[in-house]
Computed example of a mutant assay.
Amino acid sequence: MATAQQTLSIPELEAVLLVAETRNFRMAAERAHVSQPALSRRVQAAEEKLNARLFDRTRHSVALTDAGAELVPIAQRMLSEFRNSLSDLSEFIAGRRGSVTIWALPSIAAAILPPAARAFQRTHPNVRLVIQAASARQVTQAVADGNADLGLSVAVPDSPASIRFDPLLEESFVMICPRGDVLAKRKRVDWSVFASRPFVASGPASSIRLVTDRILAATGQAPDAQFVADNISVVGAMVAEGVGIAAVPKLALRLMDRERLQSVVLHTPTATREVGILIRKQRSLSAAAKAFLLVLRSLSPSHQRSPLPS
Rank of each mutant, 00 (worst) to 15 (best):
L261E: 07
E21K: 15
L216K: 05
A67I: 03
V16H: 11
H124F: 00
S162I: 13
R197N: 12
A117Q: 07
Q44S: 00
Q304S: 12
G95D: 14
A288S: 12
V234N: 10
L129P: 12
V127M: 15
F199I: 14
R122E: 04
R273W: 12
V100N: 02
H60Y: 09
R59F: 11
R26Q: 06
P125N: 12
P106S: 10
A67M: 03
R137Q: 05
Q138R: 05
G244H: 00
L17T: 04
A155P: 08
A109K: 09
R273V: 12
S310H: 15
S162T: 14
R283T: 13
H60W: 13
S87L: 09
D158H: 14
T3L: 15
S263F: 09
A67L: 03
R188Y: 15
S233F: 09
S202K: 13
D230A: 13
P114G: 07
R96L: 12
S99V: 06
L266V: 11
G220P: 11
S107H: 07
R23P: 06
V239P: 05
L168C: 05
S87T: 11
A38E: 08
L50T: 01
K281H: 00
A28S: 10
G276P: 04
A155T: 00
F194I: 06
V156G: 06
G242D: 01
G242S: 04
L278G: 01
T101V: 14
V243A: 05
A2L: 14
A184E: 04
Q141E: 10
T268H: 14
A222W: 01
A52F: 00
T268R: 13
F120S: 15
S80I: 08
A63C: 02
A111H: 13
L8F: 03
D190N: 14
A20Q: 00
L253K: 06
L50C: 02
S306W: 08
L18I: 07
Q226A: 13
L17I: 09
Q262C: 01
C177Y: 02
S90I: 05
P106G: 09
L216A: 07
A109H: 09
F165M: 13
V265L: 15
L251I: 07
R53Y: 11
K185R: 08
S172Q: 09
P157V: 14
T212W: 07
L278M: 04
R260W: 00
T140P: 02
A111T: 09
F92Y: 11
W103T: 15
P106Q: 06
I176N: 03
S80F: 13
P309R: 11
S85Q: 15
E48F: 02
R305W: 06
A291G: 03
H303N: 01
R53K: 15
I112Q: 04
S107I: 08
A2R: 15
M1N: 09
A136F: 08
I74Q: 02
S159Y: 10
E274K: 03
G98V: 06
S159K: 12
K250H: 11
